[in-house]
Computed example of a mutant assay.
Amino acid sequence: MQVEKLVSESDIFIDRKFQNEQEYFEVIAQHLLKERKVKSSFLDSVLQREKNYPTGLDTGKIKVAIPHTDYTKANTTQLVVTTFKSPVGFHQMDNPNNIIPVNLAIMILFNNPEKQPQMLKYIMKIVQNQANLHEIINTKNIKSMKKLFENFGG
């Protein structure tokens, strides 16, 4: 897995404002559809998956969501990184009735089921460390964010 290809500058969103997770998914899915990185069924699929298997993680002070859906809905393998200007409520993975204030979403796109475990391992290495999350949240430049994710993989 080539880390430098996992994060595209066009798919990094810094200090974005969303009213809720629904709006986040709609805006990001529309963007990815325009880029032809996902299929037209992506939005419905990711919303349904989020409803059945929430992706909000209480990782400490800085909380993360790792949304994704079935590999058949994506045309590429990569990450979409979004930091939120104000936290967005996501249902918690290990307590679905609980909504947690998420500061960072790292959406996974993968077009091959064999790539999912590698992607999750890479992301979990990043999100289990508050220092990494603090660095991500404080990065305000797209090129710097891309480089940061490359460095995490090294």
Rank of each mutant, 00 (worst) to 15 (best):
I62H: 00
L133C: 00
K73L: 07
P113Y: 08
Q130N: 05
I106A: 03
M1V: 03
L33R: 13
N111P: 01
M119A: 10
I136M: 06
Q116S: 05
E50K: 10
V3K: 13
F110R: 06
F25M: 14
K125Q: 09
L33F: 10
Q2N: 15
E150T: 12
N111I: 12
Q116M: 14
S45M: 12
N141V: 07
E114H: 10
I99G: 01
N138T: 06
D70E: 11
I99Q: 14
P87K: 02
V46Q: 14
N151A: 08
D11H: 13
Q92P: 01
R16L: 10
E26R: 14
T139D: 03
K51R: 12
P54I: 10
L32F: 07
L109Y: 06
E135R: 13
L120D: 05
T83A: 08
D11P: 02
F13T: 07
N20I: 02
T139E: 07
D15F: 08
M145V: 05
R16A: 11
T83M: 02
Q118S: 12
K147S: 12
V38L: 08
D44G: 15
P113H: 11
G89N: 04
G89S: 10
I99S: 15
L6N: 05
H134Q: 13
L120A: 06
F13K: 09
V3I: 15
L47A: 09
V3Y: 11
N20K: 08
E114Y: 07
I100R: 01
V38Y: 12
D11F: 09
Y53I: 05
K146P: 01
A131H: 13
A105S: 14
Y71Q: 10
K63H: 00
R49C: 07
L33N: 05
V64A: 00
L133T: 03
V88W: 11
I106H: 02
G89F: 02
